[in-house]
Design a protein around this nucleic acid. Sequence first.
DNA 1: TTGTGTTTTATTGCCTCC
DNA 2: GGAGGCAATAAAACACAA
Length: 312
Amino acid sequence: MAGGRVFSCNNTNSVGGSNNLSVLLQSQRVPSSSEPMDPLFIPRPGSSPYSFFVSGTRSMVSFEDVHGGNRSFFRSFDEEENGDEDLDEYFHQPEKKRRLTVDQVQFLEKSFEVENKLEPERKTQLAKELGLQPRQVAIWFQNRRARWKTKQLEKDYDTLQASFNTLKDDYGNLLKEKDKLKQEVLTFESLIEFKPLYGFGLILILVYQVLQLTDKLVMKEKNNSELSDVNTVCQEPPQKPVDSDSPHSSYPFEPDQSDTSQDEEDNLSKALFQPSSYIFPKLEDNDYSDPPASSCSYGFHVEDHAFWSSAY
DNA sequence: TTGTGTTTTATTGCCTCC
DNA sequence: GGAGGCAATAAAACACAA
């Protein structure tokens, strides 16, 4: 035993069941694990069947006094070990562990609920009441504290596990929210770059249309001047053949009006001065469609708002 | 009945406190 | 240095399925 600790031998449980046995419980030296202690049983004639010495003192305890003669605290040793032969056999057999009875355990449990630590006086008192050695009571409390600690650890673990799961869920939700906000930030950033291009693109379109229209007007003017030159050279233009059967026949030098009809000019004018005919994406509150990759896109007609959505 | 896993009782060694 | 607590562990007792 470490520190030379001296403690009472065990097997007190067997005391209660043995016939008229009292036990002198005082170990004078520490047995090694390979050297089991032989309890020293001293029969005490005339004593109660459940009386015994405790720790070598004369603190004899009558279990009948404590529990009104109820022997339920002890196993029915009368059934297990009866008579001198059994007693003799018991003395020579190696020590065996004896479990506490249900009543003893219940008594100890109630005492443990009151206070899980054991003061010397209480230990002695409990030992007396239960017919156990103080050492046994101490060991029981020690083991009981260990069991309580294990269960407490399990409870703490469950509590921590629940907290962890809750935190994990919260963390997952926060991550989702973070991604969503990040996406919104990106959209807004893109929007900031995108909006100034609206004006620039519009200008490009207008310039392009102006150039196209100017070009066509120039061409038309040129054609007209050439026609006038031809008419000047030809004093007498050839007569149109009168052919009522061929209404579509035309004079070969007659200027072709199909290319630059008045309707087309009107349309071009409309196109030029009504830029709204170019459909731009309508930026609504929740429309975070990305802008075109480049401003060149504004050179094309976009007929459908859906185009912007599907294009990106 | 037996093998196996669990529970309970007890021991051992180390540590702290007084 | 002794008393007592604790962790680790041994070993008996017990429960239970096959």
